[in-house]
Design a protein around this nucleic acid. Structure first.
Lengths: 149, 149
DNA sequence: CATAATCCGAGCAGCATGCTAAGATTTCCT
DNA sequence: AGGAAATCTTAGCATGCTGCTCGGATTATG
């Protein structure tokens, strides 16, 4: 039940771009340094985000990346789906193209996974990049230590 | 964001045991056949469930497995944690022993993962094996086809 | 004592992850 | 014009996890 680093790093990068939204394009090198990520690896992640229409690249010197739309119009679910594919605790309840049960599949467990899927999606779709920026601004989060249990 | 087959198959097996709760021990072979799973593979999964105290094994002929407590006292979260480890979309918000942020980790994203974690746990902890048996009994589920979007 | 079952551990092919590396291309700035 | 800064593209690769299989040891029943 784990996210890969793609989603993890990718959201950090998108948050970084959201914080700098409105200014000139942000080069990946700056994002990588601020977020402490490998620049080359980030290139691959941002390519996926670009293909998903979430960011635009600006080539050449003084180029970089810019969010394709306002931070309030991009939510965590968008970012994660672009990087990790459709949300699906198991293949047969994937958000897109859910595989059919095989004969003996007992669908009771499917209803569980569908509810888990919807729970995850509900959380992710309710948080926009703008929300994250605002929370960071307000300092309304616990940081530099353990999260509360 | 996927469950491995351990959680998937393991819950099916536990549901099977729950449906047969109260009778004599159920041999794994029967579970494997009904749920269409590899018996040898199931052995490994059930070993994890046994170590977690969720099932008891009865050795020898006419042996098998029995739930360690009433189906209403075992929920989906128990099963999944036994098979997949603590719920943690990313390592730094694991339910147990959450790793500390490294210096540059931007904790805003951590709050997202913590909320996702809690969302998953809330769903899983709210469903008991008894609930699943009751739903199966009532037929209050959509089966043999696609789940509703 | 044969049979049915749980237990235990080793092994292993295949796949996804998380990178690194090397370059081709585009654009800005001087 | 030309160099520098950046995006883009493709390939490759080590490592670890997954999803099994296999063989056997142990224990109880009848």
């Amino acid at each position: 039940m784990r996210l890969s680093t793609r989603g993890h790093y990718g959201l950090k990068a998108m948050f970084d771009l959201a914080q700098n939204y409105g200014s000139s394009p942000i080069p990946l090198k700056a994002v990588a340094q601020r977020q402490n990520l490998s620049e080359h690896y980030l290139e691959q992640l941002i390519a996926m985000l670009r293909k998903a229409g979430l960011v635009n690249g600006v080539r050449g010197a003084q180029g970089g990346y810019v969010l394709a739309r306002e931070p309030s119009k991009i939510n965590v679910g968008d970012v994660i789906r672009a990087l990790e594919g459709p949300i699906a605790p198991v293949y047969c309840v994937s958000e897109e193209n859910p595989g059919a049960c095989d004969e003996a599949d007992n669908c009771i467990t499917r209803t569980v996974w569908a509810r888990v899927r919807d729970g995850i999606a509900a959380v992710m779709d309710a948080i926009s990049l703008a929300d994250l920026c605002r929370e960071a601004e307000e300092g309304s989060y616990i940081c530099k230590g353990k999260l509360p249990e």
